[in-house]
């Protein structure tokens, strides 16, 4: 589902809606199965004073928690055939993702810390365009939020985000070197961990 800006050109894709939200994170139910953005992607939720989040967890599961999936492909030629032969699956499974909030729109500007209020339930969630990612990542003041121990696999989330953001900048190397310096400060005393993250964002 593409949303269109004032010039009539497609900008971002509407991915789904918020089904759980707090001032620190929100959970999005995707409109389409397996249509979640990759780990570490920057997403925006809400029309108006939007909140920005970085995808930190993606899951696909049964709509009904009391029903679980069973193998269905013994006689299928490929995985796609399993879905074609069982069309109900696309209605019984859903994909959701969790995003940690790293900033919000504050009038004309962007704040890179937690918003005063959580996103509303059913807020639309969009992926961010290259331009939005570049603008948001011009400052990395939000990185301490991503280092919060409440996030699972936080180092992978940070590395994924930096790789995605780096690709949006004109000089990716300069961006990543600056990001590495920021991380070195934030992760002082955690040398093995810092090295792990830096290895993952090295070109």
């Amino acid at each position: 589902m593409n949303d269109v800006n004032g010039n009539g050109t497609a900008t971002t894709t509407r991915l789904g809606e918020v089904i759980e939200g707090s001032t620190t994170e929100f959970r999005t139910h995707c409109y389409d199965l397996y249509a979640a953005p990759p780990l570490g992607s920057l997403v925006r939720c809400g029309d108006g004073d939007s909140a920005y989040g970085i995808v930190c967890d993606v899951a696909t599961q049964s709509m009904d928690p009391s029903r679980h999936a069973i193998p269905r492909g013994r006689d299928s030629e490929d995985e796609e055939d399993v879905y074609l032969s069982n069309p109900q699956l696309t209605r019984l499974l859903y994909t959701q993702f969790q995003a940690v909030i790293v900033g919000y729109e504050d009038g004309p500007g962007i704040q890179r810390y937690l918003p005063p209020f959580p996103p509303r339930i059913h807020s639309f969630v969009y992926d961010c365009s290259t331009e939005e990612v570049r603008t948001f990542s011009e400052s990395l003041d939000f990185l301490p939020i991503l280092l919060s121990p409440s996030i699972n696999a936080q180092d992978d989330v940070i590395a994924s985000f930096l790789r995605i953001a780096g690709a949006c900048h004109v000089d990716s190397n300069v961006f990543l070197v600056n990001a590495g310096k920021t991380l070195a400060t934030l992760m002082a005393g955690q040398l093995p961990r810092l090295n792990n993250v830096l290895r993952r964002i090295s070109p």
Binding site: Y83, L84, S85, P87, Q88, L89, T90, R91, L92
Partner: peptide, 14 residues
């Protein structure tokens, strides 16, 4: 009510 379509235009509505 369940509608399941199989074949070239596989589809479902529950």
């Amino acid at each position: 009510t369940v509608y399941l379509r199989y074949g070239s235009q596989s589809d479902a509505d529950l």
